[in-house]
Nucleic acid binder design. Structure first.
Length: 756
DNA sequence: GTTCTAGAAC
DNA sequence: GTTCTAGAAC
């Protein structure tokens, strides 16, 4: 504790609150202001924008003005990181201003439960995401130090500490000053960090090994039990109020306490888990052998798409045939058993009775998304209470086979509170039971496709949750909101694609600017589409399939090629060739003298990521047609050189082969992304894609954004150029031969080859 | 995918 | 002044 230095008379106070969402910053300010006799201004980034998201600059201005007017100021934003505080501290430079920090360093659990509960709060941090966000923020927290420029720091680590601080500030009259120095801190920073690291190492490792060892060999997986209970014990300790003064023993205790809450985040946050039942194999009587193949195939496809997440196939009994089949098949594949394993247990009680923490569970739903029936559907609706029914109903009324819908579970649901389930994903698989609607009469061609789609939708729904939770730590309230918006965007995309993500209703209701509402509108529109288009029932699930992980969202502008491929007769005038399985057209914005697109007409084949073994023929067909046109152009102009290939991550939906001359002489080639999309590994040569599929059954993608923002290099001599005009100038004159890589395997098509 | 805009960077 | 970037809108 620092020695108090001599306070001056009646300084204005600039009090910077430090605390996670839900730590009680706003309440603190309000309570102080209610009883205080000195003029205070609370500067809150959430409210300063008058309905819109506020900016840090607005806060700074507002605070500066108030200080100038002699008012004391509360900076009511999270300020968990030193950098976020620094500019506010600068406002307090000068002898008449005391810069204070009030640190609301309450248990993460408390902040989370408050954040989850609140609905009308200005910060608009909502529901299940709140937990993840608070955790993320706390992970990056840097407790303030006097050296940052504070005169006084008050640490509150319990609610009674907060009460004391309210009293201290509430009774601070206009002529009073508070002593300088640090107050209330019970745990020096460095020790906590060591404690955390030790603790994390101890706890995370067993999680992994347990699942690796037991996941496959033993049908009853027992994963987080040990360390979770360990965390729980420690948390219980931490809830004992500790008001005693600093002693070395207490410091240690406190350190473990912190470590406990951090470790808890690891199991809760870092290993997101989807538990799912086998779809369609029970009441829908789908062939188990075939279903097991599909499960393993889809798990293999998705399991390497995420780092800290895992999939768990759950069935009630050790005798489960489908579990046995999947276990056998999965053992033959090279699937990371930390990412996928089977588990015997009740899907509605995985945590409470099995110790398996699954924040997402899948429901084998019926098409009306109604409770009842039997099996998993009845069990989940029962266990989740009416909350799930209403949350589901709020967004969608029905589900067609092969689709899934993500429903965030209201925090009041028993499944949420007891089992830690934050999302339920309803999935509807194909039905082979003549007693049930939409029976496929043993048509396993259709059935397998639908079941594949169902798992794709399910896993993509999960991936969208994982992705969202894996967002980088947020920096302040503004960013926090942006992240939420991004998530809404994502869910919009999902809903358009039948993986509907019902976001929290209260978010919409909260008066928070038009921007958000506009976006939400989009989401609603999208979800309407989902269930009205009966003729193209499968379009939605199919056009979403991409690299298997990230839900690819196709904007409205990205649909043009798809429309052409589906209905070429409507665009006859713009097309060079129409056949049963391909369409050829000039690129609307050619990036070279000659630039064609050869579209696959296969429904659901949107990009390279969608390609599987079965598409080899269409790839060859696209290549052959592209080659034919290239040669045709070469006949007209022998100086051209063509390259045929695909973009790793196309912007336009519907698989299209680019046939492009290598002059890149075009006014439409305007930016780095244009150039790099044709001249880096992002561009996948058609011949290589065909090899990939022949050899590995899937296409290699190089869809890193870095490739598209790489330095501009000549496609012949590889020299670098500072900007597009200079590059264009260079390539128009470069006489170098093409790099040898391109000269191999027929990657380039030129007149000389044509004559062979 | 494109266009437009504003602001930053050079 | 030009180029780049990011965001929004389409």
């Amino acid at each position: 504790m620092d020695e108090a230095s001599g306070p001056k008379e009646g300084n204005v106070v600039l009090a910077i609150l430090v605390g996670a969402p839900g730590s009680g910053k706003s309440t603190f300010c309000e309570e102080v202001m209610r009883s205080s006799t000195r003029p205070w201004l609370r500067v809150c980034q959430d409210t300063i924008g008058n309905g819109k998201a506020g900016s840090k600059a607005q806060c700074l201005n507002s605070a500066a003005k108030a200080l100038k007017d002699g008012k004391s100021v509360f900076i009511d934003r999270c300020n968990l990181v030193k950098e976020q505080r620094s500019e506010f501290i600068k406002l307090g430079v000068g002898p008449e201003i005391d810069v204070h920090a009030v640190v609301l360093d309450l248990p993460a659990k408390l902040c989370i439960s408050r954040s989850v509960k609140r609905s009308g709060h200005e910060g608009n941090l909502q529901g299940g995401k709140a937990a993840a966000v608070v955790n993320r923020m706390l992970q990056n927290k840097e407790l303030p130090k006097l050296s940052e420029g504070f005169n006084r720091i008050t640490f509150c680590q319990s609610e009674s500490d907060v009460k004391d601080a309210v009293k201290t500030y509430g009774t601070l009259g206009p002529l009073d000053n508070l002593p300088h120095g640090c107050f209330g801190q019970k745990n020096p920073d460095s020790k906590i960090q060591v404690g955390i690291m030790k603790f994390l190492k101890k706890t995370t490792v067993p999680v992994d090994t347990a699942s690796r060892e037991k996941g496959i060999g033993n049908s009853t997986s027992q994963i987080p039990g040990k360390n979770d209970s360990c965390c729980k014990d420690i948390e219980n300790n931490s809830s004992i109020p500790n008001d005693t003064k600093l002693e070395s023993e207490k410091v240690e205790g406190r350190a473990i306490d912190y470590a406990g809450s951090y470790a808890n985040q690891v199991s809760l946050d870092d290993t997101l888990t989807l538990a799912f039942p086998s779809i369609s194999t029970a009441d829908f009587q789908f062939n188990h052998e075939k279903a097991a193949d599909i499960i393993v195939e889809k798990v293999a496809e998705f399991s390497n798409k995420f780092e800290n997440a895992r999939l768990v196939l759950v069935d009630l009994t050790h005798k489960s045939k489908i579990l046995a089949l999947v276990k056998t098949k999965v053992a033959e594949k090279n699937i990371d058993t930390r990412k996928f394993f089977t588990h015997v247990g009740d899907i509605t009680r995985l945590y409470s009775t099995g110790g398996l923490r699954c924040n997402v569970i899948a429901n084998a739903a019926n098409w009306r998304l109604k409770p009842g029936g039997g099996g998993v559907n009845a069990a989940i609706f029962n266990a989740a209470g009416p909350e799930l029914e209403s949350a589901t109903k709020e967004k969608v009324k029905s589900l067609s086979p092969g689709n899934a819908v993500v429903v965030p579970l209201p925090s009041s649901s028993p499944l949420f509170t007891r089992e830690g389930v934050t999302h339920v994903i309803h999935v509807l698989g194909p039905n082979m039971n003549p007693q049930r609607p939409n029976c496929l009469n043993n048509d396993y061609n259709k059935g397998c496709k639908i079941l594949q789609d169902a798992y794709t939708s399910l896993f993509e729904g999960f991936v969208s949750i994982v992705r969202n939770q894996a967002e980088k730590p947020v920096e302040n309230n503004v960013n926090l909101e942006r992240k939420s918006l991004e998530f809404q965007d994502q869910s919009e995309g999902c809903s358009r694609n039948n993986v509907t993500n019902t976001d929290q209703k209260s978010k919409r209701d909260a008066d928070h600017g038009s921007e958000k509402n506009k976006k939400y509108k989009g989401a609603q529109d999208g979800s309407e589409l989902t269930f009205t288009d009966s003729r193209d029932q499968k379009v939605d699930s199919e056009h979403r399939r991409n690299d298997g992980g990230i839900s690819k969202v196709w904007g409205s502008w990205a649909q043009a090629l798809h429309q052409i491929a589906m209905h070429p007769e409507k665009h006859k005038d713009d097309l060079l060739e129409i056949s049963e399985d391909v369409v050829v057209l000039n690129d609307m914005f050619p990036k070279a003298k000659k630039h064609l697109l050869v579209l696959a007409r296969t429904r659901g084949l949107d990009c390279l990521a969608d390609i599987q073994n079965e598409h080899l023929e269409i790839l060859k067909k696209l290549h052959a047609v592209g080659l034919k046109w290239a040669k045709k152009f070469l006949n007209e102009n022998a100086s051209l050189v063509f390259r045929l290939g695909y973009h790793s991550a196309p912007s336009m939906r519907q698989l299209h082969l680019h046939v492009i001359s290598q002059d890149f002489e075009s006014k439409h080639l305007k930016n780095k992304k244009h150039w790099n999309s044709f001249n880096t590994a992002f561009f996948r040569d058609s011949v290589d894609v065909i090899d990939d599929i022949s050899n590995h059954g899937k296409a290699t993608l190089k869809d890193d954004d870095k490739l598209l923002s790489m330095e501009l290099r000549c496609n012949k001599c590889r020299s670098a150029h500072p900007n597009i005009p200079r590059l264009k100038l260079h390539i128009s004159n470069c006489q170098s031969p093409f790099p040898s890589y391109l000269l191999q395997n027929g990657r380039l098509v030129s007149a000389s080859e044509d004559t062979l």
